[in-house]
Structures are given as structure tokens and as C-alpha cells.
Nucleic acid binder design. Sequence first.
DNA 1: CTCATATTTGAACGAACATTCAATTATGTG
DNA 2: CACATAATTGAATGTTCGTTCAAATATGAG
Lengths: 177, 177
Amino acid sequence: MKAFWEHGYEATGMAEIIRITGLNPGSIYAAFQSKQDLFLAALDLYGDFNRAAVERQLAKHSNPLEAIRDFFRQLAATVAGPSGKRSCFLVNSALEVARHDKAARKLICANFQSIEASFRSTLERAQAEGDLAPGKDPRALAATLMVFIWGLRVLGTTSPTPAQTEPIVAQVLELLK
Amino acid sequence: MKAFWEHGYEATGMAEIIRITGLNPGSIYAAFQSKQDLFLAALDLYGDFNRAAVERQLAKHSNPLEAIRDFFRQLAATVAGPSGKRSCFLVNSALEVARHDKAARKLICANFQSIEASFRSTLERAQAEGDLAPGKDPRALAATLMVFIWGLRVLGTTSPTPAQTEPIVAQVLELLK
DNA sequence: CTCATATTTGAACGAACATTCAATTATGTG
DNA sequence: CACATAATTGAATGTTCGTTCAAATATGAG
């Protein structure tokens, strides 16, 4: 998973995976049909970690809107930090693989939709509690936040500073006011 | 350029480029040092096209804010259309190549910054003309719009419908009010 | 311990990879 | 036309790619 995440699908050779895992080719091919199959399993594993991390973040504060704000403030820091260039394995794969591989696209979309649903329900909770204006559309807002997350991941590959990422996040949080 | 755009750097073989161009290996290597060199030239060419297209769009309307609104409405349609999965060659390369290749990163960043500057000056013009509220920060807004563009490109790889992309763009345009 | 079943081993496979270069053909000048 | 220079040709290079498989080893039940 780490190898595919770091170098991408095409740039990662089976030889490297064999070296990293310490397994022999035969053992790997006994467990996975092909490199592509192994990649999908790695992507799926990452997706589970990712989804769990997002849900943990959103459950961190009792105030739903504050949880979202905190999520994005943290994302601004991550993206500007040393791990920003690593980006998100799902986003990387959306652009490198999902465009041509249907199975990968399906997996990635499902994960994105799950996270979007978490944001949506958090926004709905905020609206029910009166923190989010009644006129706002949680569905459209959640979809917009997702787009924004992906955009920040792209920004991360350009080695931005916190001084660059923070005002951007501040702008997005304007949408929640 | 089209081959690298469509399949990415790693997945595009020199054999395919030889086939598409109708040139022989020797001729290509007489003009370009290596596959990487050729890729950078392709990326640079795309960058010029892209920058020109954005500036054409922003100059389309005399009203600067309307030009930006039109740009994003058009982007929403493009991303939801058949060419949406192709995404943007610069964004694709930011995630696939720029993370490890310094030359590519520099080229991509320069192009992004140039486009961001166009948005910023357009926003400043809108502010000078009284269309954009005096309290808004054109610099932060321009950076935020860039992040949204990138995010929309990622969204494009998930085969979205116009019904999905349009409300998102509507949200973004809220920031300009 | 015995033996059938699983698992692991690592050498070997053909295919595809980026790249090279001596031979050939085209070009432009006088 | 003659001739120096430039460009093109395409077969061949060694390497690395994903993948296979027969042989060797480990495992667990009786």
C-alpha cells in the first residue's frame, strides 16, 4: 500500500513489492491474481483507514460545525507539511488509474461517497442544532467540501506553506457561515 | 502531448509515441534527450494552451465577475461531459509526476501561478468597479478558486452528472458575492 | 512417525521497456 | 551536377517488466 501510494501504480514494480514485503513472487501471486488485483486490495485498505480517520475527526467535537472547521484546519496543516506531497492515495489513483480502470473507479467513488455522506449528516446535525443557517443545503455543501478537499490535495503537491493554505481554508469555512 | 495527457507519463511507452507521431526512434531522440525531456516539452505545450484558454475566457465579458462566473459554469459542464475523465494534463501530472520530479513541479507551479494571477487581477478589477465587496481579499479568493478548479478536475474522473457539478459551482460562486 | 495437503521458494519466461547507432536518404550550396 | 552537411531510418541493444511453475519445504491430522 505504501509503495503504490508513494510512487503510483505504474511506477511501482513487482520487484519493489517483493523486496519490501520480503515475500517471493509465487507467494504474492498465490494470494493475489495480479498486480492490478494487489493494487485494488491496497487501495481498499487505504480507503478503510481514510474513512475511519475522517469519521474520527468528525466525531472529535460535540459541536458538528466546529468538528468540520477543525478538520479543515488540520488538513491545511497536513497539506502544507512534509506529508503534503504524498497527497491522498485515493486522489492520486483517481487521476492515474480510475480514468481507465473501472474497478478502481468504483472503489474510489464508493469511498468518496461514504465520506461525503459523513459530512452531509454532520452538516444536517449542525442545521438541526441551529448552527448552520436554515437556507443552506447540506447536500450541496457536502459535495462542495469534497471538491475542496481534493483541490487541497493537489495544492499539496506544489509544496505550499501554511501561509498559503490557511487563507484558502478560511475562505471555504465562509461557506458554512 | 495527447498520449501523455490520456494515459499519464508512466503508462505511455515510447513505442506508442513512435506509432502516433509516425517518427522513428532516432528522430525523436535527435530532438529530445529522453522520454522525460519529451514529456516536459509536452507539458509545457499544454500549459501554454491552457493558460491561453483561461485568459480568453476571462476576457470574454467586459464585466470581470461575470467572466469568472461564466468560466466556472463552463468548467462545470466540461467536467461533467465526456472529456471530464481526461481531466487536466497539468493536474494529472501534478499528482503522478510532480511529486518526485522537480523540473515538472516547477513547470506546473509556474503555470498555475500564472493562471492564479489572471484570476486575481480580474477580481481586483471587479473590486475597483464595485462589483466585488471591498472587504473581500482578491489574493485569497484567487487561490481558493484555483483549489476549486483542481478539485473539480478530480471530480471529473468520477463521471459526475451536470446535476452534481452545477450545485457545487453555485456554492463556489457564493464566495464572490 | 506417516502421509496428504498447503505453502514457499527462486530460477526462468517471453514481452515490453527506453535508448542507441551505423547505414541510408534528403537537403542546400556553389 | 557535385559535394558537404543534416536528417531519417529501423534493426538491435541490454534492462526491466509482470508472471509462472516445478521443486522444496512446512503443516497438521491420524
